[in-house]
């Protein structure tokens, strides 16, 4: 479903993504981890056509993102790390806008928009302008938006940030259900517990390079940390224990 070959992205002198090769098949939940500034969000932006690659190619649902951009975008749903949506639209209007842009038939929009608003406990807020929403409410609205058009591939950049525990639980269950139905989910997250519980495979990126890739047992083996949890594996691969001396001075 997602195929990335020799992907390079440079911003001036900075190489944000270095020769990335990755294949995520249909129905897989893929967790993309890495420290801040590792290149995860850049990769997501490249996948959804918000950035152009310097080298290499990406394809989504069989469509090359560079040459068949619109078909690729039609198969995608993006939940960005910062859920900014038009402040002067109401929640229901935003969903309507998304429905129209992604070609969802009107009878289906009529049925699903109120359902989705209710599902995310936004029913009471559907008629209010987005400018009056909290961060978490906007996050829920954006997730509702991608569910409305039922994409084949979901790109999620920190989807749980800002969600209350109930909504976060629901979001996790939604992802599992979608995955079972064949939707590919590409998720950047810093919440290792979520990655551990949800993801079929995990990739760890550091400074633009994919340094580890595989299932949790495979990652444990790579990090030589049998029986440890993802946090230990992640820290041993990314290096996270050298702050012990700093802690003493805190």
């Amino acid at each position: 479903m997602i195929r990335i070959s020799g992907l390079v992205k440079r911003f001036g002198g900075l190489e944000a993504v270095k020769k990335l090769d990755l294949h995520v098949p249909a129905g897989e939940i893929f967790g993309f981890l890495g420290p801040n500034g590792a290149g995860k969000t850049t990769t997501v932006k490249l996948l959804c056509g918000l950035l152009k690659p310097t080298e290499g190619s990406l394809s989504v649902a069989g469509f090359d993102v560079g040459s068949r951009t619109l078909e690729a975008k039609r198969s995608l749903g993006l939940v960005p790390d910062e859920p900014f949506v038009y402040p002067k639209l109401s929640g229901a209007e935003y969903l309507r806008f998304i429905g129209e842009l992604y070609g969802v038939p009107l009878p289906e929009q009529r049925r699903r928009i109120p359902e989705l608003l209710e599902m995310f406990e936004l029913g009471r807020w559907g008629g209010e302008l987005v400018e009056s929403y909290s961060h978490g409410m906007r996050q829920k609205l954006v997730i509702a938006g991608v569910l409305l058009h039922q994409p084949k591939v979901l790109l999620l950049d920190e989807p749980m940030v800002g969600l209350d525990p109930k909504s976060a639980r629901m979001a996790k269950e939604i992802l599992l259900t979608l995955s079972k139905r064949g939707t590919t989910i590409f998720m950047c997250t810093h919440i290792l517990e979520i990655a551990e519980k949800l993801c079929h495979r995990i990739g760890i990126m550091i400074a633009g390079s994919l340094v580890a890739l595989g299932t949790l047992p495979e990652l444990r083996a790579q990090a030589s940390r049998e029986g440890s949890d993802l946090e230990d594996v992640f820290l041993s691969l990314t290096g996270g224990t050298e702050y012990a001396a700093l802690l003493k001075n805190l």
């Binding site: 229901a92 008629g127 209010e128 009056s132």
Partner: peptide, 9 residues
């Protein structure tokens, strides 16, 4: 500002 708008269905 709060305003109750009808869902545009």
């Amino acid at each position: 500002s709060l305003r109750r708008l009808e869902p545009p269905l």
